[in-house]
Design a protein around this nucleic acid. Structure first.
Lengths: 130, 130, 130, 130
DNA sequence: GTGGTCTAGACCACC
DNA sequence: GTGGTCTAGACCACG
């Protein structure tokens, strides 16, 4: 099984964190369905060319969050979650990032208009890139 | 001289980084004018209740960026910068954060409308808080 | 891994600076290849008989310059650079020193011939010493 | 009395050092003759817009070197020196700088030809600037 | 008084 | 094992 996860070597963000964020997004957005059997730790480590320790940490963290479920001998599955729960999670990380951006803007005394302009700019830039 | 810098003990962000971000914002937004003599590292350390070394790191990082100028025996000043340069810096950090928010949104397959809604929500929430 | 770095205890130059200059030279001249994993800060500190912190400063400064790349848990590598970039760096420090020498000469009203003579003399003296 | 001494605010070199180097050059090159009465510490400090402490240090250092002579109540004079002595001093600082440049070159494995080219380049560049 | 260097040691995060 | 942060304290150089 293949997972669309990209690692950015240049980034200062820790490896495990990059993977975690992307895997979490795949789950809460339903791109990886409930009950799906994920690749084994070794497999995923090979796919991503990183240490098994790193992948283990990702699986563990997400299991602690209740998004994954590990069953001895069979592997790691995507856990079932209450409908509302998943959708709340889906938007919460985005909302957080949005608030961070606005905090950054306020620090340099941006007006609402400037912030809106920067938002639309970023949106347009993202469209191009894809 | 007093500087409006808040430290969040709870945050996972390193101390020096919190200070750096806020001081940088004060400078690039012109709230601390060019040529201003900043508090000595010892003074600021006392004000922020942290180690002298932590402040020193902040001053040094910002000097490397070209925002500060220090002269031994004299103190640390806000450096002069090209007009456009400063304004570019002012918005770049915000733009970056905005792009990060949108990337986070795309990962969980947000539509443009969802993103706009989250942006306005965050904006409204920020207004309340202030 | 061993690095040909000499420390001069007598010199007024700061320890970290002596190390920095020599390591930078090793990198930009290609004597330490791109992608090479450098000794850990603890190892190099032991090799050079100085504090871990002194080495850390060197690595960090060179990372800021873009010559090194460090990843937590992994170590510090020589970064990849554009070809021209590296060669430009290789000669720039020498050019700077050369200009300083000529400025010193002009201050004491040396003629071009005197400067050339001093240059050749220094060149010859260097050959002997090696 | 006026002295052609330039202070570079941007330079990382200490104030006293910049002044010392230039005043020493004026003396050993004969641009300020033996026996000349230099400006008082206060005067020179005013001329250079720096602290009297800084100028005092310069005069003291040069007196220690034997280039100056202070007489209570009358002021500071350029000392007399043996002919050869002065000429030796005149070139020694230049020779030193030249050797430093060549050391820098050897560190990045410059050939003699590269060094010569850099020397001539620096010479040409200096001619332009004047 | 200012900043700069070097030292030590503790504790944490990452792989 | 790796690097990163924060702390302390001593000593020096500059103005």
């Amino acid at each position: 099984m293949w997972l669309p996860i990209q690692i950015n070597e240049q980034s200062a963000e820790p490896l495990y964190y990059q993977i975690e964020v992307q895997l979490r997004a795949l789950i809460v957005s339903g791109q990886v369905a409930e009950g799906t059997l994920l690749p084994s730790i070794r497999e995923l480590a090979q796919m991503l060319k990183c240490s098994v320790i790193t992948v283990r940490r990702v699986y563990q963290d997400l299991e602690t969050e209740g998004l994954l479920r590990t069953r001895q001998g069979t592997g790691t599955y995507v856990a079932k979650a209450a409908e509302g729960d998943r959708d709340r999670l889906r938007l919460s990380s985005v909302a957080e990032a949005m608030e961070a951006a606005i905090t950054a803007g306020r620090r340099v005394q941006c007006t609402d208009e400037e912030l809106r302009a920067l938002f639309e700019e970023a949106l347009a830039k993202d469209k191009e890139g894809r």
